[in-house]
Design a protein around this nucleic acid. Structure first.
Lengths: 212, 212
DNA sequence: ACAAAAACGATAGCAACCTATCGCTTACGT
DNA sequence: ACGTAAGCGATAGGTTGCTATCGTTTTTGT
């Protein structure tokens, strides 16, 4: 129930200070994850951001929400540009291979953030697919030239990143496995007689994150 | 300081009731994970096992230890036999493909346990490698016949299982992706001119679990 | 059968996560 | 410039995971 004189505002843009705080919290959380590990308390993140802990929960719901936002921000700022760079390469297959390699390298270098993202289910094929979109035209180019099997999708490139990094789950080795298994998968995307089984029919956007 | 008359027992075999309780706890935990999900409280596991919660901590150290023991038990009892069955197949490549497929299927069917194992870092290439050992002779046979690239290792077969299941991280789709990416990887293990980069030089046993 | 030692259940206490509330402050539209 | 409402910090209280302690029960070897 509301008075007639009050303008009804069904959806309203957040205030400037709310946006500023969200951004501060995400930056602080990324730094805190890096420096204090995945188990860093939210209180420390709030302190670093210069806000009260209640504000953290108010903006992001819970700890998982904070981590999701961190991962989304990092992905958009650091990973997507690497996908865009693939278009510069002369050979499209080389472009794809180098883009995938550099994306895997940067993700592996942000170990805590990646681990935290996995824990909250933010590092999925479906989510990675969104940021791999720029690889679409390079992939199409490679397919046109017969360098890559025709039934490969952008989603599969995202899956390659997820799969390779899955071998890196614990810190007990260097990144040799990543190079090895990326090579194995790149060997697998070459043209082949028998087609791949169909991918899952995931609804677009089902893995969506809300970033403030 | 101890009296001279007391026999010194530097390492001593656990008592029968301790062993019994460990086993009960693991069984109860596997059932509880299945029926109540990954977030099931340790109190519920203790209650199901008919022991006090202190005993759970005493036997396994912490929650992660319980989950590690569950996963190890499950792996030894359900997964390793599937690797052994690969030797029955007439065609070694078919045997490998079917073993990997069935291993992936059973792991995917135990979603909660797999998720929990991932959370505590118990589902790694190094650990899976231990149970994939029986695939070694089938792999060697396939290589002798030139069906599979010569530089493939048993460790790589374990990595294939880990990688394929990494695409299944959230429950928002059926197992179509698993079949697709297993096919992609099987396509990648065919003989090839350029060799794979060396694998990581993980020390044997570094991913060890202690099961009671 | 019996004594020592190992294991046990119960419980108390601590830390982190999360929800909810409350009075104060800041941004924003008029 | 000013009133309103959105946002804020602080804080209290509940839940869970985990550690530590203590008196009691069970196993085990002789």
């Amino acid at each position: 129930m509301r008075t007639a004189s009050v303008r009804y505002v069904p959806e309203h843009r957040p205030r400037a200070d709310a946006l500023r705080n969200s951004d501060r919290i995400v930056r602080a959380a990324i730094a805190a994850l890096r420096e204090s590990g995945v188990a860093v308390p939210l209180e420390e993140i709030a302190r670093r951001a210069g806000v009260g802990i209640a504000t953290v929960y108010r903006r992001f719901g819970d700890r998982d929400g904070v981590i999701r936002a961190c991962f989304e921000t990092y992905f958009a700022e650091e990973v997507e540009p690497l996908a865009l760079a693939a278009r510069e390469a002369a050979d499209p297959l080389r472009g794809l291979a180098e883009a995938l390699g550099s994306i895997i390298d940067t993700l592996a270098a942000h170990r805590s953030l990646l681990t935290a993202a996995r824990e909250v289910g933010a590092f999925t094929v479906t989510i990675a697919e969104r940021f791999a979109e720029p690889l679409g035209e390079v992939l199409a180019d490679a397919q046109r030239r017969g360098l890559v099997r025709a039934d490969l999708l952008v989603r599969d490139l995202a899956a390659i990143v997820v799969m390779v990094l899955a071998t890196d789950y614990r810190a007990d080795h260097d990144d040799a496995d990543q190079r090895r298994y990326l090579a194995l998968l790149l060997n697998g995307i070459r043209p082949s007689a028998d087609p791949l089984p169909r991918p899952s029919t995931t609804v677009r956007g089902s893995g969506q994150l809300n970033l403030h």
